[in-house]
Simulated assay, not measured.
Amino acid sequence: MGKVIGIGIVMIALLAGAAMYYLQVYHFYEPVEATGTDDVRLVNLGTGQPEPMLYEDFQAIDATSSPIRYRACFTTEMSQAMLSETYQMYEGAEPLTAPGWFDCFDAETIAEELEAGTALAFLGEKNIGYGIDRIVVVTEDGRGYAWHALNECGDKAYDGTVVGEECPPREDNPEN
């Protein structure tokens, strides 16, 4: 009888593990429908406002289960020199991994290119969600990537630290 119970426990654990894997890697992600005009935006140095940039071949995924699951890939003919003179750079960009099936986005390769200086990071939009910034990276050969990252307010809000006056009020809690 003990063997049957042991096998039952192992089977339940395997099923639960497979379900969790499926939910994390596949289930929550949805493709993002491209508008064709403003899917990729960068913050202009002069105005401080996000504005659309020229891009092609846009594909993206997102999930409602987390504000930092957004990943996108695109191409652009805009040069890094022109982009860096027009748009706000982003210091310390660290790409987040994407599910293996979203194969246009390879966080390790993007990180290597950022470190080597063959890719530049820009602020796509500040506080696209509370405490979340959109980061856009463009490589020398015109490949582009975007993802969401926690900003200072997001770091504080999600680790329980007092947010302070420098952070905008949260829509779900106007007192913060």
Rank of each mutant, 00 (worst) to 15 (best):
T139C: 06
R143T: 11
I68L: 03
D38M: 03
C73T: 04
A18S: 06
E152K: 11
A146G: 11
N44A: 05
E115A: 15
S79N: 00
A81V: 02
E94Y: 14
D38H: 10
L14Y: 04
A93H: 06
G131Y: 05
A111F: 14
G142L: 13
Y87R: 01
L120T: 11
E115K: 13
A157E: 05
E115W: 08
A81W: 01
F74M: 00
A149I: 05
L96P: 10
V25C: 09
T109V: 15
G160T: 05
A16S: 12
G36T: 09
V162P: 08
G8E: 03
G142T: 04
A157I: 04
Y145L: 12
E125K: 11
G100D: 11
Q88P: 12
C104M: 07
N151S: 12
T139K: 02
E85S: 08
L54R: 00
Q80S: 03
V4E: 08
K126S: 09
A72S: 05
R71V: 04
P174Q: 13
R143H: 15
Y29N: 03
L150T: 11
V162W: 02
G131A: 13
A119S: 14
G100Q: 09
V25G: 02
I12M: 10
P50C: 08
E91M: 13
Q59M: 07
T161P: 02
R143G: 13
C153S: 06
F58G: 01
D141S: 09
S65A: 10
